[in-house]
Design a protein around this nucleic acid. Structure first.
Lengths: 340, 340
DNA sequence: TTGTATGCGTTATCAG
DNA sequence: CTGATAACGCATACAA
């Protein structure tokens, strides 16, 4: 960019000083006289000097920028997470590089390879539903790249993981339906391999078992791409509606799936029982304005983003190059908003 | 980062070649024999060589990354815009650096200064409601930083601007209400200084005038921070509800304001006429699932993001260093979804 | 306290 | 076709 025509060299030439002196003044070093420092600082401000970050990064071997990979930015949950990340990052002089995997393991890997070209100091990632192969991620982690997982984690990689209490959320949601008198509760879930999906499934099962309601496999359907396409949710719901004993309540296992289920129930291409209940995860602000009210489990997305960035900061700035991280942050603030 | 322990130098040492030869092979230069090229490429792949982007950037004076500044990521409209930007950017080998102004001119300037530290090759920005002082933006633009405005533009800066047809959208929305028999139509708008707010105001006025309905100043209220805080919308609505002749319909001038109005009407801390109509801009997917249906003007946000990034690419890759851009992309696909 | 010299990893220019 | 060398802008070890 032409912006930074002005460099340290320009300043040193103009002021008849060496570049190192100028550099020291700018870096606020002690080994420099107050007067020269002030002189340099004043002049630098006057001509609007801005350090070249690429040169700094090359020298310091630190880019002061982090990478963030999520499945889709335009998803309330993730955009709120990113909001939290950005707010902490910018306060600490870090730049946030965002890319989305669109639930594709291939795109995820591409983004990952690109970002890790000795470019980012750390990574916050929420893996895609497709992700099965963690080789590359594991490799860069072992080579020393600080990584924090958010929401969708990989157990095999030992590092900080920021997750909500999915088990409890799912348990509560299911139990809520049970308390309301529903007994044929179906679960429409994310890809079964996803960490959060597993935990939510366990919560769902626990609530049912506790109420002595048998867990039926045909009442549990998966959207392998997280409901990225509506058609995925549609076929999941269709399969449920075609059962001889239809569910009387649906528990939707993710933001996207919740929206998809609502859409399905509204469209009514296939006959849907009038009183079919729906509860689900959602971070969309509009859910609280729905009529009739929709029961919802909301994740503390912003806080999770903040926590992730804070942890990443501590890792990046830790002097100890390698360390075992086994901290698990449990964000417990899950709320059930309304009753169905 | 320690990831890129492997450099060109390592390869050259191992293969008994000079760094320049290696560099040429990697850059796929013509002036190199097929065999050595293949040899180098194979070895590079084998040891998983990744070029150091900071060094490249320093050399090329190009970072292959762009800056994006929006008011808030966690706003459906902007997150969809970013989605569009990112999809085009990643296809073209660009990294997207995102920061949010939270409708604060101060934060906006800070982000801007940080991003422009000879770091980004181009900028896509949707200015904050507060922005009045364009000096810095103008300065960097004149120094040659390619800039594309999205949605909220600054007329004084001559560059590409990607905007929806706000006039038409507002005109249609207002006209729609008139056709439905409403005559006391209030407008709750963004800061009056915002380009989009002006255009929407004009559309609103045009529709009223056409129907020979007088435009009343007290029926037009502004949220100076774009409804960033609910309280802002609340007081705007309160002032309308306290009028001796209350409006029979509300036209909400932005995503955030639409949500705020819905919330206000639902809360009913103050008496709101039962049949008060609401129409507004919104890009939230859930609006189509609302009951009763909410009339909505939806912006082609994703497409706007794509267009902005495409234009920015053309500017960044244009050989001509400076040029007058006066193209205005009018995204015409505005839809009124449901009838109130 | 200040200046000189060197290197970060890459590419480009110039010889060979 | 290949190699040596310089340069991008900055920071630091070392010298003065």
């Amino acid at each position: 960019m032409k912006l930074s025509a002005v460099t340290i060299k320009d300043i040193s030439r103009e002021l008849n000083l060496s570049t190192s002196t100028v550099s020291r003044a700018l870096r606020d070093s002690h080994e420099i006289s107050i007067e020269t420092k002030q002189l340099i600082l004043d002049y630098a401000r006057k001509i609007n000097y801005k350090p070249n970050r690429n040169a700094q990064s090359l020298k310091e071997k630190k880019s002061h920028s982090i990478g963030v990979i999520v499945s889709e930015i335009a998803n309330s949950f993730f955009s709120q997470v990113i909001n939290g990340i950005e707010s902490i990052a910018s306060k600490n002089g870090y730049t946030v590089n965002i890319s989305q995997s669109m639930e594709s393991a291939e795109r995820e890997l591409m983004n990952l390879e690109y970002l890790t070209s000795s470019f980012i100091d750390g990574l916050i990632i929420s893996v895609s539903t497709e992700t099965k192969n963690h080789l590359y991620l594991k490799e860069v982690h072992e080579k020393g790249l600080p990584i924090v997982f958010v929401d969708r984690v990989i157990d095999e990689i030992e590092t900080h993981k920021v997750i909500a209490d999915n088990f409890k959320g799912a348990y509560k949601a299911t139990k809520h339906l049970i308390n309301k008198g529903y007994s044929k509760i179906a679960l429409v879930s994310n890809h079964a391999g996803l960490s959060i999906a597993k935990e939510r499934l366990e919560g769902y099962k626990a609530a049912l078992s506790e109420a002595k309601i048998p867990v039926k496999d045909n009442m549990i359907v998966f959207c392998d791409h997280g409901g990225m396409l509506y058609s995925e949710v549609e076929s999941a719901m269709n399969s449920l509606m075609r059962l001889r004993t239809k569910p009387d309540a649906i528990f939707a296992g993710s933001d996207k799936i919740t929206t998809g289920c609502m859409r399905f129930m509204k469209n009514k291409k296939i006959r849907v029982p009038e009183d079919l209940a729906l509860i689900g995860f959602s971070n969309n602000d509009l859910t609280e304005l729905l009529n009739p009210p929709l029961s919802v489990i909301k994740q503390p997305a912003f806080e999770m983003g903040e926590a992730a960035m804070t942890l990443l900061l501590s890792m990046m700035e830790s002097k100890r190059p390698q360390q075992k991280f086994e901290t698990r942050i449990q964000s417990t603030e899950l709320l059930i908003r309304k009753s169905t």
